[in-house]
């Protein structure tokens, strides 16, 4: 209690009470006096250590070294990350096809789950009309991809189709590459939002130094995302620009996942 009073950590009311007690109690007055003498003695403590110019020079050198390393490693990471497209245009195209194909596959699966056995006369029309099938990239309104629709019974009679079903089938067009990319982007954005939330909850548990490195990497990736999005806006059909952008999103997901599991 007296130490707390001596340290100035007591509220005003209690301080007054303790002060009154010390004035009346010899033992407590002695203890209070002793604390004062000790404190005085401790102020004369001389350490054999001081801040020298060399100390700042050392700090500065290490900061510069780290900064150079960081710039080097980010550059190296970016070079490594984006070197494949530069080396091989075929690889780029293949990756885009794989990404688009995977998205189409997922969409087909979702469509088939949502519309069990849904076969329309529109499909048959399309199937019976090779000229309309050949234009797979054109995206005409009546087009329906063969790999999405389940095969129709070969000799079945044309069934009357309710108007609402026709409307639904007409809207279920094959998505354009732009749509697929937009969807992929949206999925990445959603995943990033979820992971970011999780990471933010864990921030205090992470080592500050590690956290700083992660944050620095995330900032670099964000800049890359921004740059690649700008490139995609300027050249929406450029597969390399698209791959750069999706790769940057994927990298951000990877880093956030690593942070969440660290």
């Amino acid at each position: 209690m007296i130490e707390e009073y001596f340290d100035g950590e007591m509220d005003e009311k209690n301080s007054r009470l303790v002060a009154a007690h010390i004035a009346a109690c010899g033992a407590c007055a002695l203890e209070y006096d002793r604390l004062g003498r000790e404190q005085e003695l401790y102020t004369s403590y001389e350490r054999e250590v001081d801040v020298t110019p060399a100390l700042w020079a050392g700090v500065q050198a290490r900061i510069r070294e780290e900064r150079a390393d960081q710039t080097g490693s980010v550059r190296q990471w970016l070079t490594g990350f984006f070197s494949a497209p530069r080396l091989s245009l075929v690889a780029t195209a293949a990756l885009v096809v794989i990404a688009v194909g995977a998205t189409v596959g997922v969409m087909s699966y979702l469509n088939s789950r949502n519309q069990p056995g849904g076969v329309s006369t529109g499909d048959q029309t399309a199937r019976n009309n090779p000229s309309s099938n050949s234009n797979t990239q054109g995206g005409t309104d009546n087009q329906k991809p063969d790999d999405v629709a389940p095969p129709a019974p070969e000799k079945s009679e044309p069934m009357p189709v309710p108007p609402n079903r026709v409307a639904r089938k007409e809207t279920a067009k094959k998505p354009t590459p732009e749509q697929l990319v937009r969807e992929a982007e949206q999925k990445y954005v959603a995943a990033i939002a979820l992971l970011s939330k999780e990471v933010n909850q864990r921030r205090t548990e992470l080592d500050p130094a590690v956290l700083a490195q992660f944050d620095s990497a995330l900032a670099a990736i964000d800049r890359t995302i921004e740059d690649t999005r700008r490139a995609v806006r300027q050249s929406p059909n450029d597969p390399i620009a698209l791959q750069y952008m999706l790769a940057a999103y994927a990298k951000k997901v990877d880093v956030l996942r690593e942070m969440a599991n660290d």
Partner: peptide, 19 residues
């Protein structure tokens, strides 16, 4: 050692100042 660790402290502080 105190000098070395002080240096380390400020380098870490610089690294994490954003936090």
């Amino acid at each position: 050692l105190a000098e070395e660790l002080t240096q380390e402290t400020f380098v870490r502080a610089y690294r994490s100042l954003k936090l």
